[in-house]
């Protein structure tokens, strides 16, 4: 009974919401707190054949230089799928994690022929690496 009363007190709910938000943020941060060095290896093995990290160099996939934080499908001159063009995505830790888990599930109609990275740590690492691309 005493616990129920405490839960009903008006200042508790904001605190709980804050705690939930903090946990969610921590999870989100955890997704980008991977090791960029390990992420480079993950990138090379899984992405590097089709994507360059050099500015302006497209392969079967577009250059990923400077893509972190940018809107999806914005590299000039590269022919993206309509699905990605209209996705409205901005590549941050959350959207990248979702996309890299299941590219064709996250953006149905995406041209990218990749089944996704099942390992959460590998996703975190490669996202950490991507976040370094294009940094001065």
């Amino acid at each position: 009974m005493r616990r129920a009363r405490i839960m009903n007190q008006s200042f508790i709910r904001p605190l709980l919401c804050g705690a939930v938000l903090a946990v969610w943020t921590a999870n989100a941060n955890a997704q980008i707190s991977g090791d960029a060095s390990d992420g480079e290896d993950v990138f090379t093995a899984n992405c590097g054949e089709c994507h360059s990290v050099r500015e302006g160099k497209d392969k079967r996939g577009p250059s990923l230089y400077g893509m972190y934080g940018a809107k999806a499908a914005q590299r000039p001159g590269f022919k993206y799928s309509d699905a990605l063009l209209t996705s409205g995505l901005v590549w941050d830790a959350e959207t990248l994690a979702r996309y890299l888990t299941d590219p064709r599930g996250a953006v149905p109609g995406s041209k990218m022929k990749f089944d996704g990275l099942a390992d959460a740590q590998e996703r975190a690492d490669v996202i950490a690496y991507m976040a370094t691309l294009g940094l001065p």
């Binding site: 590097g48 089709c50 392969k59 079967r60």
Partner: peptide, 9 residues
């Protein structure tokens, strides 16, 4: 054609 290096394939 692909923009990929020889080493990719």
């Amino acid at each position: 054609q692909t923009g990929m290096e020889c080493a990719s394939c």
